[in-house]
Design a protein around this nucleic acid. Structure first.
Lengths: 144, 144
DNA sequence: CTTGAACTTCAAGTGACTTGAGCATCTATC
DNA sequence: GATAGATGCTCAAGTCACTTGAAGTTCAAG
């Protein structure tokens, strides 16, 4: 049972087979040994490693960041501080993105509310959403 | 002064010149008329339209959504409801993304806090972050 | 032996641009 | 009028992290 083909590995790790081949191609996974018929064969260690990789990706680490994280695992003499640094700088990025999204959400809520209050489904070009989107450049509704 | 070249249009709208050419190529901006020397010439209406487009993009609307929004502007008989619909379905997407990011942030904060509490900068492979990232598959720290 | 699922490779497509090469044109100064 | 440097032009390829498609091979079941 410990010998898996690519489809089984994919199922166990929530990956697709093409993605596994892609990870192999970019060197994130080792080049898997092949069966007689040239099909890739995997073992339990591959399940572990790929699960780790997928988890990092779910946490929105980029492939290059994952490469470093995997390197930390491979290189057992490396410092914990490297992992902490990677995680916390990633956290910074996530927080910045969240701030942006919050501002965005507020604007969109405002647009929709204004539309409900003022346009009431009336036709066209004077919709406050279109007006709002054109604003802040001081140009009002845009005439094409 | 109402005749601008691409660089000036770029400056006034916070866009890059290649991006403006790209928008022209995909039909989001009309093909600009050319000067004698084949350089593009723009007017105030182009500033308005591009500002509108950039604003939509800042609000994370996809190019295709922007294309619709611009179409709403162009087609003055269209209904306000279309714009409202576009904005509110976009809002849904933004909220979903925010929920993901919030969960992600919590995890990362947890990782870093655990590391500070338990690893204290000690060396290596037993860093709780690497452990945490490998978890939930029940495999613990991953052995490559 | 045949069927069909799963595998193989290689190439191209996605979105929204960015970057680079190599050449033309404009503007300012001498 | 000559020249230098900024700005413009086109076309092609690169980015990221895969996904999709074509066309052919291998495996497992009946």
């Amino acid at each position: 049972m410990s010998h898996l083909r690519i489809g089984e590995l994919a199922d166990r790790t929530g990956t697709s087979a093409p993605t596994i081949r892609y990870y192999e191609e970019i060197g994130l996974l080792r080049a898997a040994p092949r069966q007689s018929g040239n099909q890739r064969v995997y073992g339990p260690l591959d399940v572990n490693r790929l699960t780790f990789i997928r988890r990092c990706r779910e946490f929105d680490f980029s492939i290059e960041q994952v490469r470093k994280l995997v390197g930390l695992l491979d290189n057992r003499s490396s410092s914990c501080l490297d992992a902490r640094e990677l995680a916390s700088s990633h956290l910074e990025g996530v927080r910045a993105k969240m701030r942006e999204l919050r501002a965005l959400e507020r604007s969109l809520v405002g647009f929709v509310a204004d539309c409900d209050a003022q346009c009431a489904g009336g036709p066209g070009p004077d919709c406050v959403i279109l007006g709002d989107l054109g604003k802040r450049c001081g140009c009002g509704p845009v005439v094409p």
